[in-house]
């Protein structure tokens, strides 16, 4: 099977600090991958590199056969850690923005998701709660028919019920050939939706496995294994 994302010997340094080093990864189509690691392990750096927001110090990233750039942005749907949407805008304004911007944005589906949440299209972002804002952002990202979804901490700032909603939205809306990469440190909430997990520690990959192999081979959950590997 052809990999949608492949990186070899990827390295990123900020001044003297190594954020990532010697990362070799290959993600296949149709998988949901968890990028797991404690704060500062390089998760966001990796995702930013994949989006071309920063450039590698060494090594390469290939997404669907191309280096990160304009062409890959058309097929990669990215949920950043922080919101970048303007507060004064209405939800409908942002929908139209995305519709203009991305050929693969399905505005009808976005509206459907929005109404299932009981959020009005005419509402301004600044009037929404933090959790609701995050849901709107997720809707924007998941309403695209992308080949690769890169979700940086999609469940970080929301309550457990909203987490369930977010996870089921991801499951319902990613298309079967697409790959979803989810970075998080909230593992117990998310491990049941993952195919594969990558453990990042101090910028290096320390484990790459399927969830089933971990549970079958080690007789413990990914969460338990994580606590062992990253014991302080």
């Amino acid at each position: 099977m052809m990999a949608i994302l492949q990186c070899s010997n990827l390295e990123k340094t900020f001044g003297y600090k190594k954020a990532l080093s010697g990362v070799n990864l290959s993600f296949e189509k149709g998988r949901i991958v968890g990028l797991l690691g404690p704060n500062g392990s390089g998760k966001s750096t990796f995702i930013k590199l994949c989006n071309g927001l920063i450039t590698p110090t060494n090594g390469t990233i290939i997404i669907d056969g191309k280096a990160p750039g304009i062409e890959t942005k058309a097929i990669v749907s990215y949920l950043p850690e922080q919101t970048y949407l303007n507060d004064w805008m209405k939800v409908s304004d942002i929908f139209n923005f995305f519709d203009d911007f991305y050929a693969d944005f399905d505005i009808a589906r976005a509206r459907e998701m929005l109404s299932s949440l009981g959020i009005g299209e005419k509402e301004r972002l600044k009037t929404l709660s933090k959790g609701t804002k995050e849901k709107v952002q997720l809707i924007l990202v998941m309403a695209r028919q992308a080949k690769l979804y890169l979700l940086d901490e999609p469940i970080g700032g929301v309550d457990p019920a909203a987490r369930d909603y977010i996870l089921s939205t991801i499951i319902k809306n990613y298309n079967q050939d697409a790959t979803v990469v989810i970075s998080t440190h909230l593992i117990s909430d998310i491990e049941r939706v993952l195919d594969d997990v990558v453990f990042l520690k101090n910028g290096e990959v320390v484990l790459l496995s399927t969830v089933d192999d971990i549970r079958e081979g080690k007789g413990k959950s990914v969460d338990a294994l994580f606590r062992e590997v990253f014991k302080c």
């Binding site: 149709g30 998988r31 949901i32 369930d164 996870l167 089921s168 499951i171 319902k172 079967q176 049941r192 939706v193 993952l194 195919d195 969830v211 089933d212």
Partner: peptide
């Protein structure tokens, strides 16, 4: 599969 997976909050491949 999609509906069941989403109801159970599990990975569709699983």
């Amino acid at each position: 599969v999609r509906d069941m997976a989403s109801e159970a909050s599990v990975n569709p491949n699983t």
